[in-house]
Amino acid sequence: MIQDFLQNDYLQHALYAGLLIGLISPLIGVYLVVRRLSLIADALSHVTLAGVAAGLFIQKKLNLFTEINPIYMGMGFSVMGSLFVDRLRRMYQSYSEIAIPIIMSGGVGLGVVLISASGGFNVNISGYLFGSILAVRTEDLETTLIVTSITLLVLILFRKELFALSFDEENAVLTGVNRSIVHFFFILVVALVIASSIQVVGILLVSSLITIPVATALQHTNSFRQTLIASILYGELSVILGLAAAYHFELASGGAIVLVSIMILLCVFLIKKVVYLTARLQKNRQRINS
């Protein structure tokens, strides 16, 4: 099987794209999860769907931009959606989560209307819904690489600000952290990561690679640094094992990756339980002996 992955072009593309997404999704995921914003990923992925539908609509009805992948339109929508979420969240400060269903249903509504208005598309929408990692072309890989670089750059440059704002926004702003600049770049990166991870796991599963590896890491990490590292490790492990399983058993790749990541979560949970129980047993034994 390793041979296949080394020799086969499309498998290689799939692996590289998967590894890049497996790196950046959990990374932004850490910042989203600790701020209780993990649902934003879902909302934005649905907005991306509307963008993709808009792109396809323009191609079919107006015969424009036929050379351009509609996912770029999706990215544009995702970016706009993310700025809109931010605005809504500030409008409803004490119910900030309300922004998410508004944006999410707006995205689905718009997507569905556009799809029906154009009388259906001859491309396979399910590729967008469930991911089509085996159809990753060289140019898609290039886009993913660019998005990865931008993401890493932003997260590294603003690392201390992002931490300070995530832990205690009021105090961070008070000590002079420039909330608006940092937040703008972060939300931009979130939108880009979501749009570009759609090919790997699909719109319906985008939030999985953003939240599940982080949820797994949070079970056992102490520091923020550890959480970042562990989340990346779990993300990459899910992608590698998921892809291998998908290829070997001929399964849908997005679903396989998500299921593997959930399995890892359960394994870590069990290991934690076992470690805890053995520690207690040992303590009890010591007490009996003494």
């Binding site: 603003f158 201390k160 931490f163 105090n171 008070l174 002079g176």
Partner: peptide, 9 residues
């Protein structure tokens, strides 16, 4: 994190 603002971007 108390130093984040003081150090600057």
């Amino acid at each position: 994190s108390g130093l984040a603002g003081k150090l600057g971007l």
